[in-house]
Amino acid sequence: MNFYAPWDIRVTLDFFLGGLGIGAFLFAALLSFYDRKRYREMIKISAYIAPISIILGLLALITELGKPARFITTIFRFNPSSVMSWGVFLQSGFVLFALIFAYLIMKNKEDSGMTDLTLILGSLLALAVGLYQGLLLSANVGRSLWSGGLVPVMFLFSSILTGTAVVLLICSLKVSTVSNVTQRETATVDGQSKDFSFTGLLFGLIVANITIVLVWFISLNKGTLETQKALDYLISNHGIIWWGGVIIVGLLIPLVLVLSQLNKRKNNLTTTPIISALILFGGFVLKHIVLIVGQVRFPFL
């Protein structure tokens, strides 16, 4: 079936890059409240990734507009019933907090009260932006693949996972922080906090993602004729990329690698970048496929 998808890959880029941004910010917030001195380098990388990534995503979205120069009018022509209208403010707000945070980190002011406030408010906005992306899809009537309300949660968790993965990928490529990334939890003798278990975090996030994707998939499969039709279309036309790209490469292989890393109880310098890259690939494909296939229209007759 040929169809015209009004929203193309530039919208996926906004979802994906925006997702990286909010995920990186939330990761920075988590590490900051855990032990900001010890993980200073990682927090710094996260703080820079967050605004850069979401701004790049927004730029991709603006190029998708028929009249890009009119983008600014969304600010003063607010429509309260439009999810996109709310999104403009949420994303702008998040960009602002992400920039403030990056500035504070750059100026070495991570211990100020201002940083904590920025992190708390920024994290709330990050969660809102993460949910907004899926809501932009699921708030449409008659779009079976996006119905049921699970898409916003699925996108949010995918964003948190990919955002964490991108930070770990960049950090693991930098020799100085490699040990931080791959170390396992070990109680230290000098009274420092325990090492943060990045592998454990990845494990939890991957399991959460698999759970949500499965619940979404099963509930559509057990849903109305319309939702089954949409799912059939997904599987019959994009089955290989869905099962292979999203499920196996993007979630199951990273899960196995993370489990083996947890099991070895030793530093593994090679798997972290691989796990992160696979997660990023899977996260992108998930959002793209859900966006594109959700736009398929089925005939009235």
Partner: peptide
């Protein structure tokens, strides 16, 4: 004059009756 060409209406429209001047 107000339209920004975001195509949200096309996504929201269940009947496929809105067209975009690409």
């Amino acid at each position: 004059e107000k339209c920004i060409g975001c195509k949200s209406c096309m996504i929201a429209d269940p009947y496929g009756v809105i067209y975009f001047n690409k």
